[in-house]
């Protein structure tokens, strides 16, 4: 009896220590984000005196000032992001369905030709891709951001989707075909509805990628009104407000808000997708 009690007590202490360690690590990880929020709400003077702790009063005008520059970048990122994600989801899910469920000669070969592209490193393609779009006359347009993203993202997405589609029971598709379903109908009415989580995972990671991309937009776009968020922050905004850190940080917060919203609404899908697919080699 006594023994049991001490064991339980020891058990509880170990859990308390565990929670403390995790909480501490979380705090250190998230502290930069807190910093960004409270610095973004400081006046310039307050920042000069106490840069690293929260101060009052809150200075919301920073956000207004920042939005006048950052708003355009956000709009551009929305356009590029929505077009790229929809394009990739349509193209990759249909292609993955074909690879997973249809039988035709050369299926493995074609699939390999797609997947092999995962092994082509970005350093090899950056310069010649730039020259390709330069020769096509697509620099300084949304197309130069959207087209490479749709096809580039499709490679990984097809791998992800096919692995998932292969796991769906063949008997459902069999039954539907016997009932006279065409392949396209099977894809639209059976495969897609069963795959919402994995499509969501792809959409989120792709949007994060577009949000984070610095190099490609900043070399292919020279018109400041067309930059996406990271390129704009890097090429223009950070320099323009280099002497006014609070406005700079307000801009960073604004840049993150759409991803925060996305996270709030879709983290379930994302976590589910990440934990069920189990990436490994």
């Amino acid at each position: 009896m006594v023994l049991k009690k001490t064991k339980r007590a020891r058990h509880r202490t170990s859990q308390v220590i565990l929670h403390t360690v995790i909480a501490l690590l979380m705090f250190m990880t998230l502290y930069p984000l807190f910093i960004a929020v409270f610095i973004g709400l400081k006046s310039h003077d307050a920042f000069l005196h106490t840069p690293w702790l929260p101060t009052l009063p809150l200075w919301f005008t920073n956000f207004k000032t920042a939005f006048e520059v950052v708003g355009v970048y956000m709009f551009n990122t929305f356009i590029v992001g929505i077009a790229s994600v929809l394009g990739t989801l349509a193209l990759a899910s249909l292609s993955a369905y074909v690879f997973s469920r249809m039988r035709f000669p050369g299926r493995q070969l074609l699939y390999f030709a797609v997947i092999a592209l995962m092994m082509v490193p970005g350093v090899l393609t950056l310069v010649p891709s730039y020259m390709l779009y330069n020769n096509l006359g697509l620099l300084n347009s949304y197309w130069v951001l959207i087209i490479p993203n749709i096809f580039g993202s499709s490679v990984g997405a097809i791998f992800l989707f096919r692995t998932y589609f292969d796991g769906l029971p063949e008997s459902i598709f069999e039954a539907a075909r016997i009932d006279g379903c065409t392949e396209l109908r099977c894809y639209f009415s059976i495969c897609l509805p069963l795959s919402k989580a994995i499509l969501g995972t792809q959409a989120i990671s792709q949007i994060i990628g577009i949000w984070n991309d610095v190099v490609w937009p900043s070399i292919t776009i020279t018109d400041p009104d067309m930059w996406t968020i990271s390129a704009g922050l890097y090429r223009q905004f950070a320099g323009q407000y280099s002497s006014n850190t609070p406005v700079q940080f307000a801009g960073y917060i604004l840049a993150s808000l759409p991803l925060v919203l996305l996270f709030v609404f879709a983290n379930r899908y994302y976590i589910e997708g990440l934990t069920t697919t189990g990436l490994k080699l």
Binding site: W211, N212, S230, L233, A255, L259, F263
Partner: peptide, 8 residues
């Protein structure tokens, strides 16, 4: 942490 762009 993924809610803030890597650049930020």
């Amino acid at each position: 942490p993924i809610v803030a762009p890597g650049l930020v």
